[in-house]
């Protein structure tokens, strides 16, 4: 996958310089994360030492114990998993279906609907979150998984993205499937979806990341501790009125909050990068 031109036999020295440069930039960029991880393993009393140190003098999981026991942390974690799981599942399902309609199916009004859906990307969250908060509240969905998830079950972005991919699938494939007697529904799930595994998993990862990271909406729509997501929990550790922020526990909770997405990234870096690159190129 080397992109620029293959030059002649490379000069080793340049390579080495490039390595050093890139690694230092990389460490600089990832420093906040590394720092959080290191800090979270310090003794609570060492966390606020000045001058600050990088490595813990004594490695301890005390901060994690604090984070985990002083609040129903497992519950926050489970809430995030459920919220994210439901959103990703539906976003993928609904996007696949709509993208199929917009790419393979042909019917009058299709373009109109397409613009209608893409147009929703132009409506900012800023405009909708207050009315949606009021509406969801009136339905009695505050503090429920419904309230956390339902407004996000459809993704115009996902529809757009998958449509772009479906459009690259040769039309003949659909025609021949038709001849074989496969209807749209079967064609979609048995042929098109397996073919689009890459795009779909890329979008799933993308949906996962944004759902997991949600902050403003869960902040306003939940006030019951048992319905809080992990992102909100992190905030509550930090803003502890009339008591100093326990930075050790704050860092431990932040690390727990970033762990699932970090793990996903380490496992599925390729798909993630590919997925994001794909969206960019077609933009």
């Amino acid at each position: 996958m080397s992109l620029t031109i293959k030059t002649k036999p490379r000069i080793k020295k340049n390579d080495l310089l490039m390595h050093i440069l890139l690694i230092s930039i990389g460490l600089f960029v990832s420093f906040p994360i590394i720092l959080a991880i290191l800090t979270s393993f310090k003794l609570p009393s060492d966390v606020t030492n000045y001058p600050p140190t990088l490595l813990p003098e004594v490695w301890t999981v005390e901060n994690y114990v604090t984070a985990w026991t002083s609040t129903p942390f497992w519950r926050f974690f489970a809430n995030s998993i459920i919220q994210t799981g439901v959103i990703v599942f539906f976003q993928v399902l609904l996007s696949v279906m709509a993208a199929y309609a917009f790419s393979v199916l042909e019917f009058p009004g299709r373009d109109l609907f397409f613009y209608l859906i893409i147009g929703s990307l132009m409506v900012p969250f800023q405009l909708t979150f207050i009315p949606n908060f009021v509406r969801i509240s009136q339905w009695g969905w505050a503090n429920t998984y419904m309230g956390l998830t339902v407004p996000f079950l459809a993704s115009a972005f996902g529809i757009f993205l998958l449509r772009q991919f479906f459009l690259t699938i040769p039309k003949e494939l659909h025609d021949s499937a038709k001849i074989d007697g496969a209807g749209n529904w079967r064609f979609l799930w048995q042929i098109l979806v397996p073919l689009s595994k890459g795009s779909i998993s890329a979008f799933s990862i993308f949906a996962f990341l944004s759902a997991w990271s949600q902050y403003l909406w869960p902040l306003i729509i939940t006030n019951d501790e048992t319905m809080r997501t992990i992102q909100i929990a992190v905030r509550f550790f930090l803003f502890d009125q009339e008591r100093g922020a326990d930075w050790g526990a704050v860092m431990a909770s932040a690390v727990i909050a970033l762990l699932p997405t970090l793990a996903l990234f380490l496992i599925a870096q390729r798909q993630l990068v590919k997925g994001i690159a794909m969206t960019g190129l077609k933009g």
Partner: peptide, 19 residues
Amino acid sequence: HRLLIFVPIVISSAVTGVL
């Protein structure tokens, strides 16, 4: 190198704020 530079992509805004 890419790993180190791409990694902020998985960090949420709340955690970014805290870090």
